[in-house]
C-alpha cells in the first residue's frame, strides 16, 4: 500500500467521561489512495467523526486521548507533528467539511472573508488576491450573485448555500485530501444531490482524494470506490463498493443492507416487512470480551463471545472482523 495518500494504522482513541474511560475508536485501520473516494459508513456514535478528527489532531484535548496507532499522510506520521505543523496542514493539504455548517462557520464574519482567510495564512496571498480567488471559488461552488454573497454573513444564507461556502473554504488551497463528515445529512434530498454532484466534480477537477463519511448506504453506493464499515468503534468490514453491496461478508453489513427500505425493493424481499437487525447498539462504556456485534448477530457461535475477532481476509481486497472468516479460507 505504498501508493496510499493517507493510511491510518491501528488507531485507538478514548475519552474520559463521567462513566469512566470510553473507547470511541478501537484499532481502526484504513487507507485512501490518490484520487479515490473512500466511503466510511456506520451508525451514529460508531466513531466515524472521531476517526476523521484524529487525522487533523482535532480530538478534544482535555478529555480525549489517542492511545495508539499511526496516521501516515504522504508517508509522514501526523501524530508526531506539533500543533503548529498540524495547523499548517489543516485547510491546506487536508481539509474538512462538517455536517452542520452553521457551527463551523464564524457567525460574525462575512463569508468572503472566511474563504479568503486560509489563502492568506497558508499561501501568503495578498488581501486583494485572496478575495479575488475567494470570489471565483464562490462562483465555482455555484453560489449565485457571488459578489453580493461575499459580504453576507452565514445566517443570511440557506443551509445548502452554507454548505457550499464550507466546501469553497475547504477547497481554496487545493487540498490533496478532503474529509467530508456527513456533509449532506442536514440537507434535503434535492440539495443533497446538488452537493454530491459538486463534490464529485471538484474531486475530478482537483484530482484529490475524498474520505466521505456518511450513514446513508445509498450515498456510499453512488459516490465511493471502496467502503469501510464501522460498528461500535471498530472497522467491521472493508471492501470495494461492489463487493460490499454484492457480497457483503460481515453479518452486520449483510443485515444493514437487508434492513433499509428501498424505492424499488428487490424481488426476494416482501415489501411490507424489512429484515431487521435485532437488539440495540452496545454501549461503548462497557468492555465486551468478544465481538461487539455478537449480541445482535444471527450467526453467532462459540468463539464470538469469548475473544475479539481480528480483521480477516475474505477475498482479495475484502476483509471482515468476524470469526466466520478467521480460518483464512475466506468462506464462512
Amino acid at each position: 500500500m505504498s501508493s496510499a495518500l493517507l493510511e491510518i494504522q491501528d488507531l485507538t482513541v478514548s475519552f474520559q467521561t463521567s462513566q469512566g474511560v470510553r473507547r470511541a475508536v478501537e484499532q481502526v485501520s484504513l487507507y485512501i489512495e490518490e484520487g479515490e473516494t473512500l466511503g466510511l459508513v456506520g451508525e451514529s456514535g460508531c466513531g466515524k467523526s472521531v476517526t476523521a478528527l484524529s487525522v487533523l489532531g482535532l480530538v478534544d484535548r482535555s478529555t480525549g486521548l489517542i492511545e495508539s496507532g499511526r496516521i501516515l499522510f504522504k508517508g509522514k506520521n501526523l501524530l508526531d507533528l506539533n500543533t503548529e505543523a498540524l495547523r499548517r496542514l489543516r485547510g491546506n493539504a487536508i481539509s474538512m467539511v462538517f455536517q452542520e455548517p452553521m457551527t463551523s462557520l464564524n457567525p460574525v464574519l462575512p463569508v468572503g472573508r472566511q474563504i479568503a482567510e486560509p489563502l492568506m495564512t497558508h499561501q501568503g496571498l495578498s488581501k486583494i488576491e485572496a478575495y479575488a480567488s475567494a470570489m471565483t471559488w464562490l462562483e465555482r461552488v455555484k453560489i449565485p450573485m457571488a459578489r453580493k454573497r461575499m459580504q453576507e454573513y452565514p445566517h443570511q444564507l440557506s443551509g445548502g448555500m452554507r454548505q457550499r461556502v464550507m466546501i469553497a473554504m475547504a477547497m481554496v488551497c487545493s487540498p490533496s485530501l478532503l474529509m467530508a463528515d456527513e456533509p449532506t445529512t442536514a440537507l434535503d434530498v434535492s440539495t443533497q444531490a446538488q452537493i454530491l454532484h459538486l463534490i464529485e466534480k471538484l474531486k475530478a477537477d482537483l484530482k484529490m482524494s475524498v474520505l466521505f463519511i456518511t450513514h446513508d448506504l445509498g450515498i456510499v453506493a453512488q459516490t465511493a470506490k471502496r467502503v469501510v464499515v464501522m460498528y461500535a468503534g471498530q472497522v467491521v468490514e472493508a471492501a470495494s463498493v461492489t463487493d460490499i453491496f454484492d457480497r457483503p461478508a460481515h453479518p452486520y453489513t449483510r443485515g444493514l443492507l437487508r434492513s433499509i427500505p428501498r424505492m424499488q425493493p428487490p424481488t426476494d424481499v416482501p415489501k411490507k416487512r424489512l429484515q431487521e437487525i435485532k437488539g440495540t447498539l452496545p454501549s461503548l462504556d462497557i468492555i465486551i470480551p468478544g465481538c461487539r456485534f455478537a449480541d445482535r448477530c444471527p450467526e453467532v457461535f462459540e468463539p464470538c463471545r469469548q475473544k475479539k475477532p481480528d480483521l480477516s481476509p475474505v477475498q482479495a481486497g475484502q476483509q471482515a472482523r468476524c470469526w466466520l472468516y478467521a480460518d483464512g479460507s475466506g468462506k464462512p
Binding site: G160, Q192, D216, G218, A221, Q222, V241, T242, F245, R262
Partner: peptide, 19 residues
C-alpha cells in the same frame, strides 16, 4: 435524487436549479 443503494445503478439525478 434519492441515492440508490446499488453501485451498479449509477444515477444522474434531475438537478433542480435554485432553492
Amino acid at each position: 435524487a434519492v441515492p440508490t443503494p446499488d453501485p451498479h445503478k449509477k444515477q444522474s439525478p434531475i438537478t433542480l436549479e435554485g432553492e
